[in-house]
Write a protein that binds this DNA or RNA. Sequence first.
DNA 1: AGTTTGTCTTTTGTATATAAAACGCAAGGG
DNA 2: CCCTTGCGTTTTATATACAAAAGACAAACT
Lengths: 308, 308
Amino acid sequence: MKGNAVYKRSYNGCLAICGSLPLGAEMPSENELSQSLAVSRTTIRTVMTGLEAAGILRRESGARRLSRRPAPDDAFPDTQTLSTSATVERRFLEWILDGHIGPGHLLTATELARQFGTSTTIIREHLPHFQHFGLIERRPNSAWLFKGVTPAFANEIYEVREMFELRAARSFIDLPDDSGSWRRMRTIEAEHRSLLASIDTDYGLFPDLDERLHRTVHETADNRFIKDFYDIISMLFHYNAQWDAEDEKQRTFTALTEHLAYIEALLRRDLKAIDRACRQHLKTARSNLLRSIELRMKVPSAPDASPA
Amino acid sequence: MKGNAVYKRSYNGCLAICGSLPLGAEMPSENELSQSLAVSRTTIRTVMTGLEAAGILRRESGARRLSRRPAPDDAFPDTQTLSTSATVERRFLEWILDGHIGPGHLLTATELARQFGTSTTIIREHLPHFQHFGLIERRPNSAWLFKGVTPAFANEIYEVREMFELRAARSFIDLPDDSGSWRRMRTIEAEHRSLLASIDTDYGLFPDLDERLHRTVHETADNRFIKDFYDIISMLFHYNAQWDAEDEKQRTFTALTEHLAYIEALLRRDLKAIDRACRQHLKTARSNLLRSIELRMKVPSAPDASPA
DNA sequence: AGTTTGTCTTTTGTATATAAAACGCAAGGG
DNA sequence: CCCTTGCGTTTTATATACAAAAGACAAACT
């Protein structure tokens, strides 16, 4: 009734630790392991038992020692290390953003549960979350209305994003000199320059860097609602990146350049320049998003079919 | 396994319709009733059966006729007409905002379910909602952290509220002359003047008027995220009003005056004046909220006890 | 043709069941 | 003493069960 994804993830984690240990060495204590993997000691114990059964660890007067080197296929496949809930969230968003259904479509919990092979419990847990994202709307005692990934959606998100990011960026200059944010920002700047140098091969690393920059800016606003909102943007970017691979390198180059102007302005505490660079970057980002949404609306990938 | 609050609410609704009908008159069709009460025909049918069993309606060749005048105690009590979910939401917020627990307290779903006499299903449905409100924070696979109704909470809410309300107010002046918003705003203005005249007796009507004004402004931003956010503010106001009755009349008077300046500026499409009035009003509202939160933090009503 | 009602099917709201994971206490060892 | 492990208890994640409500279709009635 409850998956054991936590177990499998922890098992793989311990396996990695084993791999970095010389043969015959003693494993860290249950407490240390549970802390470093951020799970309960109970789970660690179960994992230890599993590793012993697999012949990887051996008990010796209380302590556990590495008795054989773990092979790559001792690990559980990555697909099994995510909870049902996380899997459904991902698959649902992919399905939505892939344009399988159009605006105005009605979603019923039962049907979604069938479609994704889970219980309605999980589905009912996620629907409010997607409502928070502005993707669906509830009809009381009835189905949910899909509002669509439309230009309106993008514009509304960006209207808010601009307000929040500008506000956060402005608060950046008020940070005390000894705030950790300055150091982090300088690191991010260096990473930008290094990525720019190796852009031909490494442009795939950009999304992560992008997120770190914007989160660093948003952090300084010190406002839970502003930080929360960035989760929506982050989600949108993550999935949007998947279906809009066109011109990715060129767009990455532009973004890196704009980011650098933005970062320099932040580091110089130059309010005017911050405003200018921030607006410019968000304008580009918004039109990229709009372009890919409009493109997608013209070429619906599959009008309305189950992904299975 | 499923409450019948919808039935009871509809029953009371039909009872009210019966009450407005002369004896022996024919009831509206099932379809009409289901439309006017916004429930399914299935529910209406069940209600009709109930009303017949209670001797209020009598069947006569297909049609239903009023056979006796409904008495006040034919109706179900109001407490039974709310779904379990709605009841729990209300009780939970009251409990939180009443200061029964302090910031840093850990909430477990099981305990809350016990406390409110429901299943964990309902609790688990609501916790993410309160997270959206910024009141709690999730620890994965574990309890929820209550962040508290603190001055920080109020300030963060107001920082966003100011951005959103100013943005919406500015977009008001771009509305076309024939937009319904102008008419609605003039009505609201009239209501303000009338309430101001009878303030000594009617100040209790203010919260509703307040909400209508701000929603009308927010509507014009035409942004789902801005509208959504107003739900948080609305919740906070609703419950805050309950525990801060002090000086209510005086505060209402101030708010009415500030609102009128704001409304006049909006109707005149005077951007400068809109900005000024809006900021002034939000400043007052924010400090009222801060004052009552600080007051409450000094006098904790009951450190940590179950309300039952 | 368009309503109205009777009947049957599907979906939603809520409680409960159960394996996995977290939590907490006590005893043992450096 | 503080850290470790062993073990019993509680809580969480997920599936399932089932009454209430919604939805769908056809026969009856204007």
